[in-house]
């Protein structure tokens, strides 16, 4: 069984934000909610690097461990999804997540945050695949159509790669071999454990 993973190759990422916009376009994510974002390190000086970050769909996902209503589940492909009907918007997952992935579309007094929203690896949620209801609540379900997340598919430089972890690692290994230097699979250890 394929184990889906994201990898952002910092040597190729140019901070063009196509992943961010592709996500908004595909999933109709509203203004102010960012399922994916690009962060820049050492901005404006030699050594500047940028990395695209979203939910990494962790093995042993910390969000699932802290959820008081147990609304998270992991698909056979390792994609971490959640049920918005169950979610109470408590925000625990935001604190548990090492990637800052969970988003809360609403803000009101006394901590009523609305249902949590996050990257679904373009795999929708617990509703009929590609139904209007699923789209409205979770966004697109490309996985059910045999397609990969649009952010990676539309990456300008193929820096952001998504797919079966072994295939992702193969691509990356080949690039590192060609350009020399140390592999920097940023976030992989945190998300997928020491084995990567």
């Amino acid at each position: 069984m394929a184990r889906m993973k994201f990898l952002c190759d910092a040597e190729r990422c140019i901070e063009c934000n196509s992943c961010v916009v592709a996500c908004k376009n595909e999933n109709d994510v509203p203004w102010g909610v960012n399922r994916r974002r690009v962060v820049v390190l050492n901005d404006g000086v030699p050594g500047e690097k940028s990395i695209s970050v979203a939910c990494m769909h962790c093995t042993d996902a910390p969000c699932a461990a802290v959820c008081p209503v147990d609304c998270f589940y992991t698909t056979d492909e390792g994609i971490v999804l959640h049920d918005k009907d169950l979610c109470i918007g408590c925000g625990y997952c935001f604190y548990a997540c090492p990637f800052g992935a969970p988003q809360y579309p609403e803000q009101a007094a006394f901590g009523v945050r609305g249902k949590m929203d996050k990257c679904t690896f373009c795999a929708g949620g617990p509703a009929k695949n590609n139904s209007d209801a699923e789209y409205a609540k979770y966004g697109s379900n490309r996985i059910a159509q045999g397609k990969l997340p649009l952010c990676a598919e539309m990456c300008a430089t193929k820096a952001l790669v998504a797919g079966d972890g072994d295939m992702v690692a193969d691509i990356y290994r080949e690039r590192v071999l060609k350009r020399g230097g140390r592999p920097q699979t940023w976030g992989w250890e945190t998300a997928y454990g020491a084995q990567g």
């Binding site: 063009c16 934000n17 196509s18 992943c19 961010v20 916009v21 592709a22 908004k24 376009n25 598919e153 539309m154 990456c155 300008a156 430089t157 193929k158």
Partner: peptide
């Protein structure tokens, strides 16, 4: 582009 887009290209549906 081999499928790639920048943020502008990824937004043209708008």
């Amino acid at each position: 582009n081999l499928g790639g887009h920048c943020s502008k290209g990824a937004s043209v549906r708008e």
